[in-house]
Computed example of a mutant assay.
Amino acid sequence: MKLDLFHDLAEENGPFASVTFDETRTDPANADRLDARWRDVADRLRDAGAPEEVVASLAEAALEPTGRGGQWGRLLVANADGLLLRHDLPRRPDQDVSWGPVPSLLHAIRALASCLPHVVVRVDHIGADIEVNGGISGSEEELEVQGDHDVLHRFKGGGWSHRRFQERVHDSWEHNAATVAQRLDGIVRHYRPQVIVLMGDERAMTFLEQHVGEETKALIVRSDTGGRAEGTDEEKERLAIEAVLAATRAQAEADLVARFEEQTGRAEAATEGLAPVVEVLQRAQAEELILVEGREHDDQLWVGEGRLQLGTSREDAEMTGAEQPAQVPADAALVWAAVCSRAAVTLVDRAQLNPADGVGAVLRWSDESTPRARVPSVPGHGGT
Rank of each mutant, 00 (worst) to 15 (best):
A247Y: 00
V221W: 05
G213Y: 01
A243Q: 14
E235N: 08
T225P: 03
G226N: 04
E215K: 15
K217F: 10
A218N: 05
D224W: 09
L245M: 06
L219Q: 05
T225I: 13
R222T: 09
A246L: 10
G213K: 03
E230M: 13
T248H: 07
H211K: 06
I220M: 12
V221Y: 07
E237N: 02
G227L: 00
R228H: 07
A229C: 05
V244K: 11
D233M: 00
D224L: 11
K236Q: 14
E230A: 15
T248Y: 07
T225D: 08
Q210P: 02
V212W: 05
T206V: 07
E234V: 11
A247H: 10
L239P: 06
T206S: 11
R228E: 01
R228S: 00
D224G: 06
G227A: 01
E234A: 10
D233K: 04
A240S: 15
G231C: 04
E234C: 04
R222V: 07
E234F: 04
L245E: 03
I241Y: 06
A247G: 09
T232D: 13
T248S: 14
G226T: 02
L239K: 15
R222L: 09
K236W: 04
R222P: 00
A240K: 10
L245V: 04
T216C: 04
R238Q: 15
K236D: 12
A218H: 08
G227V: 05
G213S: 02
S223Q: 00
D224A: 12
T225Y: 08
E209T: 12
I241H: 07
A246M: 08
S223R: 03
R238L: 11
L219K: 09
